[in-house]
Simulated scan of single mutants.
Amino acid sequence: MAKKPQLVADTRPWRDPAAKPFVRIRNVTKKFGDIAAVADVSLNIYKGELFCLLGGSGSGKSTLLRMLAGFETPTSGTIEIDGQDMSKVAPYNRPVNMMFQSYALFPHMSVAQNIAYGLKRDGLPRAEIEARVAELLQLVKLTGYENRKPNQLSGGQRQRVALARALAKRPKLLLLDEPLGALDKKLREETQFELVKIQETLGVTFIVVTHDQEEAMSLATRIGVMNQGEIAMVGEPTEIYEFPNSRFVANFIGSANMVEGVVTEDEPDHVRIQSKELGTDIYVSHGVDCSPEQILWWAIRPEKINLSREKPAPQAGVPSETNMVKGYVEDIAYLGDMTVYQVKLDNGRYIRVTKTNALRGDPEAISWDETVWASWAGTSGSVLVS
């Protein structure tokens, strides 16, 4: 008799209504004059998370991080860390450390001296400091570099020294402001995985501020997308990407084709959207909380669209002549791992389609100026009401 598979407990505390947040931000506003850099933000972050605050310039993410560190005081609202109200706690007394984008290493000190700086200021015994420095050097894979100066290190190595120094005093919460921003693309991608491994090894709660969507998606247990001082959406990376809650989030995270439409059928198991922009009806094979004749938006990721030279056969359960549109390939961008097609539809609108390059030098690949059909499944897009 086959054994029943064992159920693995869900270790994601944000899915447990009874879980106690490690960081609790309640109705926090920060104004500079009449301008609200952060506007009535409420957010729970749990112990052991690697949480990313993601947003563009001026979205309020760095201001929120600085309030957590104690470098800025909220105009209103409260911040709690590990059950303690931080409103009257000075930055140097908070169970927090911060790693800056510039790394801010002391140029005249060696790697070991930089890491040991905070421990020496606290008056720890020399043997204890040396043991802690050796432990951190091993953690960040810099054993043997302890006597080098920062100018003798690569950008990635300096980043790891700054991380080790920030972790030296065993903070309960580590704040990282654009930690990988100074690295080139390839090194940044490699370092993302190292950072995740270090965080998982230590179990320290990380809050990372970044404007880089790919970085946030690679690092985070959850992402808080910020826009104009507010939290636009909080969710796991797959939720943020696959199920955006607004046009802003759909456009900000990755790439999306978005069209306006009008609801012509509204049933519990499907809706039908008439879209003049797309030049076809869109059949969505699930219900949506909307009203008949309501104007809304439909967004679909480029990789969710199929391209074919021949008109596709109707899909099972989807009315004919819906979820397909004709056009021609006006431009192609070959990116190595995938190809991006710019397709001009018969009504003049453009859509973007991506295809993974699974075959090397595919002789059957669609090329420039070919007439094509773009089609998609009833579950491929997202219906957005705001």
Rank of each mutant, 00 (worst) to 15 (best):
6 Q>E: 10
11 T>W: 08
21 P>W: 01
27 N>S: 15
31 K>G: 11
43 L>F: 01
49 E>A: 08
59 S>D: 07
60 G>I: 04
62 S>C: 14
65 L>H: 01
70 G>A: 06
85 D>K: 15
91 P>A: 12
93 N>Q: 13
93 N>A: 12
94 R>M: 06
95 P>D: 13
96 V>L: 11
98 M>I: 07
101 Q>N: 04
108 H>M: 08
110 S>Y: 05
113 Q>N: 12
114 N>A: 14
117 Y>H: 00
122 D>H: 08
123 G>S: 07
123 G>Y: 01
128 E>P: 15
135 E>F: 03
137 L>T: 02
138 Q>N: 06
143 T>W: 02
150 P>K: 10
161 V>T: 13
162 A>D: 03
162 A>Q: 07
170 R>A: 14
174 L>I: 09
179 P>L: 11
179 P>E: 15
188 R>F: 08
189 E>A: 09
198 I>L: 00
211 H>S: 14
211 H>K: 09
215 E>G: 14
221 T>H: 07
221 T>Y: 01
224 G>F: 05
229 G>N: 01
231 I>D: 02
232 A>R: 04
238 T>P: 13
242 E>R: 12
273 I>W: 01
276 K>T: 06
277 E>P: 00
280 T>W: 01
281 D>E: 15
281 D>Q: 14
287 G>E: 07
289 D>M: 03
300 I>V: 06
304 K>M: 12
316 A>V: 06
320 S>W: 05
325 V>I: 10
328 Y>T: 04
329 V>K: 00
331 D>N: 03
340 V>F: 02
344 K>F: 03
346 D>Y: 05
350 Y>Q: 10
354 T>I: 14
360 R>K: 14
372 V>Q: 02
373 W>Q: 09
376 W>Q: 09
383 V>C: 02
386 S>D: 15
